[in-house]
């Protein structure tokens, strides 16, 4: 089975469509959305409708911190720009769309795999995995061999054996990586809709369960249009500008 992982779409319609078209071209059997469908971007309505439609057809959809905030309207510890975008997103979504988001779960398991937006120790506390120590905490908190998460907007791969600390690997795009062996793996997805690894291309991940291979995909998309809509919606300008530089 070939599973597509899409994380951190953040209301970016152009990036989502580009990733879905690419996934369809390379061939995918199942879609897993790892949360943060909305926030930052100017197309939350389109994105929620599209993902809800795919959920009806069998896609698995998980909750992210921006989705939870968009439902409640509470911005908690978010920065000013994220908070502004959440308040705007909350207004844009109708009751059915908010209801869809409110029903999402924050983690799920399937065979030897854990899916979660943030990490495994406390999926609703929205901790970030940005280094080997944080990856190790997450890996020790699950008995599943493979963890797939998002939240950080930067593609990262960690692996760990039972007796040793976790080790970081910077995954090259497009290279199938065998998640094999006598060890656990944690694959942090890049963001579909707001990459922050200085590569502005939209990111998604493909896991082939038969081959045991994971591939970090990158897809160019129409940034001008996505950024233009952010300006038109009078959302903070920085949310448009950062799309061009991937930061």
């Amino acid at each position: 089975m070939r599973i597509a992982f899409l994380s951190d779409i953040h209301g970016n319609r152009e990036a989502l469509d580009a990733c879905l078209a690419h996934a369809a071209r390379v061939g995918v059997d199942r879609y897993v959305f790892l949360g943060d469908l909305v926030g930052y971007g100017a197309d939350p309505v389109y994105v929620v409708d599209k993902v809800a439609e795919m959920a009806d057809e069998g896609a698995l959809v998980l909750l992210g911190n921006h989705d939870a905030a968009a439902v409640s309207g509470e911005i908690g510890g978010m920065n000013q720009y994220a908070g502004e975008a959440i308040r705007w997103t909350h207004q844009e979504l109708d009751d059915a769309q908010l209801e869809f988001l409110s029903r999402l779960k924050s983690s799920a398991t399937e065979d030897d795999r854990l899916y979660v937006h943030s990490e495994a120790t406390a999926p609703n506390a929205w901790h970030y995995v940005t280094n080997a120590a944080e990856a190790e905490r997450s890996l020790r908190a699950t008995d599943k061999r493979l963890t797939f998460c998002g939240h950080v907007h930067r593609p990262q791969l960690y692996h760990m054996t039972a007796m040793k600390p976790a080790v970081y690997f910077k995954p090259p795009p497009g290279q199938p990586i065998p998640l094999v062996g006598n060890r656990k793996w944690l694959a942090v997805q890049g963001a579909v809709g707001q990459p922050r690894d200085e590569n502005p291309a939209a990111a998604w991940g493909l896991f082939d369960t038969d081959k045991g291979e994971f591939t970090y995909m990158r897809v160019p998309y129409d940034i001008e249009t996505a950024a233009g809509k952010i300006h038109a919606a009078r959302l903070p300008q920085i949310l448009a500008a950062r799309l061009y530089i991937g930061r």
């Binding site: 791969l157 692996h159 054996t161 040793k164 600390p165 080790v167 690997f169 090259p172 290279q175 990586i177 065998p178 062996g181 060890r183």
Partner: peptide, 10 residues
């Protein structure tokens, strides 16, 4: 050179 080196840190 494109895959994690399981030996390097070990």
């Amino acid at each position: 050179l494109s895959l994690p080196d399981l030996l390097e840190e070990e």
